[in-house]
Design a binder for these strands. Sequence first.
DNA 1: GCAAAAGTGTTCTAGCTACACCCATGC
DNA 2: GCATGGGTGTAGCTAGAACACTTTTGC
Lengths: 250, 250
Amino acid sequence: MIKYNLSKEDQEFVANYNPGDYERPSVTTDILIFTVDIKEGLQLLMIKRKNPPFRDYWAIPGGFVDMNEDIDEGARRELFEETGVKDVHLEQLYTFGEVGRDPRMRVITIAYMALVPKALLKPIAGDDAADAQWMNIKFDHDGELYFENDHKAGVSMIAFDHQNIIKTAVERLRGKLEYTTIATNLLNNKEKFTIYELQKIHEGILGHGLNAANFRRYFLTTYIEKYKAEDTGVACTQFSKRPSHYYKLL
Amino acid sequence: MIKYNLSKEDQEFVANYNPGDYERPSVTTDILIFTVDIKEGLQLLMIKRKNPPFRDYWAIPGGFVDMNEDIDEGARRELFEETGVKDVHLEQLYTFGEVGRDPRMRVITIAYMALVPKALLKPIAGDDAADAQWMNIKFDHDGELYFENDHKAGVSMIAFDHQNIIKTAVERLRGKLEYTTIATNLLNNKEKFTIYELQKIHEGILGHGLNAANFRRYFLTTYIEKYKAEDTGVACTQFSKRPSHYYKLL
DNA sequence: GCAAAAGTGTTCTAGCTACACCCATGC
DNA sequence: GCATGGGTGTAGCTAGAACACTTTTGC
């Protein structure tokens, strides 16, 4: 919410302002809720549509912008409604506003991207009746992405232009891996994590494996020196037989 | 414009769809029209508001989204109306949708960024009565940006939240300099330009000078090897006494 | 012993930075 | 001669990729 110190003239003008009744587009915020499962890789929360259009297709959750809330707030509310989590990384992705992208009416969609640590999420009931599912995002040999859900192998049908939105999001995510510490937002515990876990998050987002020796050095320079991560000295045997160290972010 | 191959069910559903009459926000596209003047550096086209609110403040040009045009199209139309140019670089920047950012009513603004070569632009009449002006974007010693127009020194007053939008745009522009060839969109002639010109464009965007020897090598590797620029062999004496070479992009 | 992650060392390359220096030209 | 941009050479630093190797543990 923005408040200006308006001049007298402006205050008066605004008080008497008549917005007119021209036609306006509908505006929605859609949230791409990503997580990385250490085994499964990158996952996206999608919803199976129960009504036309695109009945039984998978779609990104979203909802209309409320007139009295900031779009960022709306996105956060949407995220909370879907997952019950609040304090996670959320950023605006891109705005999609082509005519005809919703066959019902003119809709402009402001897409947001949320990064939710796997452990914060309550599992979704595994039956086909559930409308919300974690979709595995996979990449073929050309780097093209496709979708799998746990129950049916093969490509799932994506509603509207959401395939395109997802591609945009994955590209952004991969891009930001290189020059930010965005991946840390997917750590289950920022106060207690191993290099191995962070590597798996990177690998999940990139869609391919990384050299452990080099990733280790990358972590030590980039995170420790630049972003002040710290070795806690505490041993971890969760992922290997030989104990490793837990690190924490400051 | 997107067209789907809808199922029979969907076609029928859409034909009978009633959108309801809930309240919708106004949506505008604003265009940040950047150019780089080889002498002045980075410039932005701004408009002096003639009416309240923020009368006499400077604002980014923009307009309402037409119900029958894509938002990208709308932005391009807006750009054409302001400058008369069409085939220039235009990309979506970010969407601003805080409550209260326009004191009159709820407005969601999709900001676009256009890069227009200086030579394509017809000069704006230099008198104070003109409502459109090229604002010089300058940077103080802390890297903070401020605005100058040709006539009045010092900081100009910026309407709405447009100061914030401009900052976002300049950051994006600088970021993209590093990993794209976005700067070439500001060349007056992509078929005939010198390294010096391109350097001046980079410097204008960055707000500081660059080492000519290093920029030269950067150009030769990045542009020639990766993006297939080519030495035309033609001599240029526009910028220096000693002739340099014109290059062209392929 | 085997497997698998943890961790160290080395080498090669590519890119950027700083800086020194010469060249060609107009004035 | 001098100023200015054009252009070359070089040395140092850093990050990344590839790869070989040892270590520590559970099984």
